[in-house]
Design a protein around this nucleic acid. Sequence first.
RNA 1: GGCCCGGUAGUUCAGUUGGUUAGAACGCUAGCCUGUCACGCUAGAGGUCAGGGGUCCGAGCCCCCUCCGGGUCGCCA
Length: 592
Amino acid sequence: MSESLRGFSRTNYCGELSAKNIGEEVSVCGWAQRQRDLGGLIFIDLRDRTGILQLAFDDNTDKNIFDKAFSVRAEYVLAAKGVIRRRASVNGKIATGEIEVAVTELRIVGEAETPPFEIVENSPVKEDLRLKYRYLDLRRPDMQKNILARHRIVKCARDYFDNHGFVEIETPMLIKSTPEGARDYLVPSRIHAGKFYALPQSPQLYKQLLMLSGFDRYIQIVRCFRDEDLRADRQPEFTQIDLEMSFADEDSVMQVNEGFVKKVFKDVLGLDVKTPFMRLPYAKAMELYGSDKPDTRFEMTLCDLTDLAADCGFKVFTGAVAAGGSVRAICAKNAFEKLTRKELDKLAAFVKDYGAKGLAWTRLNGENTSSSFAKFVPEEKAAAMYQKLGAVDGDVVMIIADEDSQVVFDALGALRLEAAQRLAIIPEDKFNFLWVTEFPLFEYSKEEGRYMAKHHPFTMPAEEDLDKVESDPGACRAKAYDMVLNGVELGGGSVRINDPKLQNRMFAALGFTPEKAQEQFGFLMNAYKYGAPPHAGMAYGLDRLCMLMLGCESIRDVIAFPKVQNASELMSSSPNTVDEKQLNELHITISD
RNA sequence: GGCCCGGUAGUUCAGUUGGUUAGAACGCUAGCCUGUCACGCUAGAGGUCAGGGGUCCGAGCCCCCUCCGGGUCGCCA
C-alpha cells in the first residue's frame, strides 16, 4: 500500500543539488534507480528528470526508515527528506557525486513491479518492446533528454517568431479532403451521412487565407497527417513549424528562417551556424549530387560522361546516349581496398532498386586495375573518362547509364550516399545547411497521364517561365525552395500565387476543369478576388529538425508516442475495431 | 504492393553436420555483508526456441504458410 504525500512538499530536483547545498535540509521525489544494500548500510539512487541523487541510510537512521529503505525495489516511487552532506568517497561519474542525503523521512508513495527492461541510458532493448512500454522507455535519461530538448526547440521557435512579428493562429483539424497530394486520413461525419472530413496534411489553404485576412505574419506549430507508408523519418502524424508572410518574397522567407535556425542551434546546442546558407538551384543539385536534398558534408560529386560515352563502343553506354539519356559517374577516392569486386556486386544490386539496369565500374590500381567495361572501350577513351573524373590509382569509378537521365540521377545519387556510408567518409559532427531553389513547377505523372504540381498547385511560377505554364510545363520553374540539412529535407516553401487569373491557369495546366477547380478550391479562388497581398511561406518538419539536432537515427526517438511501420501504436493498440453502434451512427458498414 | 534483415529465459545474446536434460551475462528472489555507487559473496527460480503445418528414427537448426518488428523501393501536392 502506497503512502500518502500529505504534508510533503518538494524543495529541490535531484540534479540541481551540489556541494553548495551541504548542510541544507531538502525534500526530493523520484524513482529508485537502484538500491544497494551493504548490510548495515543502504544506498538508494533517486532519479528524477534532472538527474540522480544518492539517499543514504546508516546506523544513525531511524530503524523504521532503515527497514523501509531495505524494502525498496527498482522503480519504486519515493519521497525523501533529509540533510545534504558530503559523501565519504566521491563518485566522479555523476553531477551530484560529491553529496548525498542523510535521510530523516522516507515515504514509498508508489510501489513498482520489476519493469520488463531496465531503465538505463543507451538501452539495448529492441524497439517494439520499448514502444509497448513507452511510458517506461520515456523514463530513460536519453529519451528524457530528447523530449526535454524538443521542448526547448519548440519554445525557441515560439519566442523567435513572436519576436519577429509572427502571430500564432490555430487552424481546423477537420477539413475538406483534397485529393491532390498525399492520401488523406478521413473522418466520417455522423450528422452528414456519407460525408467525410479529412485531417489536414498541412494548414496550407488556411494560412494563405490568413494572409488575405491581413494577419501579415502567421506561425503555427501544428500536427499534420498523411496516410502514406512510414519510414525512419516519416510518421503518419507529424509536427510542422508552419509559417506564412505577407508582402514577402523568397529572400525574406529565407532570411527570417536562417535567423531561426541560427538561434535554435545557438540556444539549444550552443553551436554557431553560418548564414546565409548556400543556394543551389534544383538542376544544379541534380547535376552535382543526383538529389534534390544533397548531403554536402562530403564530395564525391557526379560527373557527366555522356559526351565521352557517346561513341565509346560499349553498347550499354552508346545505347543510353542514343536514346536521349545520359552516362554519369562518381569517383570514390582511395576506395580500392574497401570496394572489392564483391562489394561492387552488392552496390550493383543496390542501384537496381532505383531503376538502374546495372553498374559499370573500374578499380584503378596500375597493373592490378580491373574493370567491368574497359575491355569494350578503346583504352584512350577509358583514360579520358578517368581523367575527367579526376580518378587516379587507388580510386574506384562507378558509372551508370540509362536512356532516362532521371534514373541515372536517382540511382547515382543514392549510390553516392551508400558508398559514402560504406567508406565511412561522412563527418558526423557537421551541420551543412543549404537551400535548394528553382524547383520544377510541375512533374509529369505517368500513372495519372498528366502534369502534377511538384510542390503544390498554389506555387508561383518563376517570372521568366510564366509563358511556359501552358506551352512547356516541364521546363517551368517554381518560386519554391527547400531547406536541406545533411541530406535531409528539413522544410520547404514557396511564394504563392496571389492572382486569381494565374491560379486559374495553374489549375488548367494541372488538368482541372473549371468546374472541378471551383468545386475543390472555389472558396480560395473567391477569396483571392478581394485583395490578396503577395505572400510566401514555409514549413519545417519539427520532428526531423529535432532528430538531426539531437543526433537520432529516427524521428521516433524525438516523438513521445510514435507509431511503428504499419502505422499502429503498440502501447494502446491503435487503430482498433469499434462497436457496431458507433459504426451505425456513422452510417458505415464494413465489407470484407 | 515489392525486396532485404531479424524473432531462443524478464532483457541482450550464444547454440557445432539435424542427435542426451537448450546455455551465458545482466535482471529477479532469498541469505550474508557499515561507504557502496554497474557494490561484493553464496544459493535459487526462471524456456509454448514467435505461431501453425511439413520432412525425418529424431527439428531451436531443414522446407512451406502466417504473425510481429526494423530498413528500403513504390508512395510521400
